[in-house]
């Protein structure tokens, strides 16, 4: 299939990634080759075959509803790039409409 700039831009947005123009050009070429390669699958007749959704045959693996394997707040905040004593901090994203 033909890989367009629009397709790459849309996928980049969905993937939450930025690409430079030269990266996009390289990616388009790779995509065309890779999609050409994986499209071989259309040669296989899969009429009436259920998709495989789960590996293994375990169903409803349950355990008692006890609190365990949890982490402390201090541990949870340990690796955050920006935080205070209680919260993860992110840039202000809700804009004041009257400003």
């Amino acid at each position: 299939m033909k890989v367009t700039d629009e397709l790459i831009d849309n996928l980049a947005h969905l993937s939450r990634l930025h690409f430079s123009e030269s990266e996009k050009t390289a990616l388009k070429g790779d995509f065309e080759r890779i999609l050409n390669f994986v499209e071989q699958l259309s040669e296989i007749d899969t009429t009436g075959v259920e998709p495989l959704l789960h590996m293994g045959d375990a169903i409803n693996v349950l355990r008692e509803d006890e609190v365990k394997g949890s982490v402390t707040r201090q541990e949870a905040l340990l690796n955050a790039p920006l935080h205070d004593d209680v919260f993860f901090k992110v840039p202000k994203v809700i804009k004041n409409p009257s400003a």
Partner: peptide
């Protein structure tokens, strides 16, 4: 990017579901 493509609307069945069917075979 490739994973996002095979899961995206319009391509999901032709790629992702197809591959899951092949996996079952």
């Amino acid at each position: 990017m490739l994973g996002t493509f095979v899961l995206s609307a319009g391509y999901f069945d032709a790629y992702f579901t197809k591959a899951q069917q092949v996996r079952n075979i």
